[in-house]
Amino acid sequence: MKRDIGFLRYLIPVVVFAAALVLWEWRVHASGISPLVLATPSDIWTALFEHWDVLGPALLFTLKITAEAFVLATVAGVAIAVLFSLSRVIEWALYPFAVVLQVTPVVAIAPLLLIWIGYDNVNEVLVVLAWIISFFTVLSNTVTGLKSADHNLTDLMKLYGASRLQILWRLQLPSALPYILTGMKISGGLALIGAVTAEFVAGSGNDLGLGWVITLSTRNLDTAQAFAALALLSVLGIAILFALTGLEWALLHRWHESAVKKQS
């Protein structure tokens, strides 16, 4: 019985998804909705290949902005959290800035960033906007993780004469690792959202990202191409999530309860 359940685990979502596509295709044809309003899955599939010369480079460009923002968010988030854990004064002084960055709608900052960084450096503006959206989750998760180290182990290390840095490196960072990885998983998705919305508000420079493709396609009433770009964004988001889940498994499966397979 157990083997059957494992098999269904993958079969059910695939079947339901395929059924939804069929239903979608049939419903659009049956009701005569204009293809300018809602494209069918087959139209989207065709558009994907017909406009690949636009969509392919746009996908790569969005991936590049997302990756840069994500790496910056991870590095800055962990580094600033470590700084906070080393000095409470720094935490008290700087945490409000991080919160302000987090709660301010990124749309509202975009015009200012364009002025400061320059209209000829739109790519940098996009990275900064995507970074602002994605970095706080890494920061706050890492801060929590660094504080979650076992107090008795901290005491034990002090008893054995450990330095502040030894406690950080040998105890706090490994304790924080599951939290950091959770932060990174959320941050990866947010970086993609950031990269796309940044293009909506800051426009595009010489390069064209998927966000700008969607904007242009809808302006031109090329609904199928807009949906194709949307589909690519979904695939990209899923790929990012899978990659980060894989990283999490690789780093945690030997020891952390969340990644350990239950014995049955």
């Binding site: 034990l156 054995y160 020891w255």
Partner: peptide, 28 residues
């Protein structure tokens, strides 16, 4: 020199038994 044993084993879950036992020596 002092050794301390808590009520809980207080081990580092990410480290093997050997790495755990080695901790005070690593720190020194």
């Amino acid at each position: 020199p002092i050794g301390f044993v808590f009520q809980e084993p207080t081990l580092m879950p990410w480290a093997t038994a050997l790495s755990n036992a080695r901790l005070p020596l690593d720190l020194n």
